[in-house]
Amino acid sequence: MALLEIKNLQVRVEEREILHGLTLTIDAGKVHAIMGPNGSGKSTLSHVIAGKPGYEVTGGEILFKGEDLLAMAPDERAAKGVFLAFQYPVEIPGVATMTFLRTALNAQRKARGEEEYSTPDFLKKVREISKSLNIPQDMLKRGVNVGFSGGEKKRNEVLQMALFQPSLCILDEMDSGLDIDALRIAADGVNALRSPERSMIVITHYQRLLNYIVPDVVHVMSKGRVVKSGGKELALELEASGYAQFEDAA
């Protein structure tokens, strides 16, 4: 069954159309990779799904679990199970990571009409997850992402993913700025979250990440559209031949 259906999506940023009728369907439990050159609209797509302000949707629709996603505020989307792992996670000085995690988790649970977590249950859960991701406890006491290395910031994103248990994870250029070791830890964390109920959109410029997070489907984006879809072998093909062939196709 389709978890996410994007139909003929058209998006503008300040008078410039970035997505020109993008159509994409993602089934529950599947990992889809979206590849494409810079400026093809990959990050715009991830931002529009998450509800970032500043994008004007001029046509098309996005259905998430059959509901109109574009009508929801970003926090409602998060509560419904949409999670965007940021390409550049922001630093929030003065907000301790633990406080942030707890506030966010409880806000989502409250929005879904679920009971808030008790402190011991919450702490236990965070400790388990951070241990598996090799995140030291003292990092969680610091301000959100403040003084974190690139790898630590990405691991913090994966930690949140594991804590919130979203049904759709969008990983925006998760490999950017990571060395191989950091990439492997983050990818292991992501792989541990693969399940028949959870779908993922892995946005990446390079094939390298897909060696660690192996996709079920690969899409190629160019000039604001999906121009080709295929199996994981499509990524290897792109690595060999580059994106140039699709620039013309679009």
């Binding site: 926090d75 998060a78 940021f86 996670p89 942030f100 506030t103 966010a104 806000a107």
Partner: peptide, 15 residues
Amino acid sequence: DDSLLFYLRARGLPE
């Protein structure tokens, strides 16, 4: 900061 606000809202915090 709008980018901080969006990060928090994308994590489920109402405005």
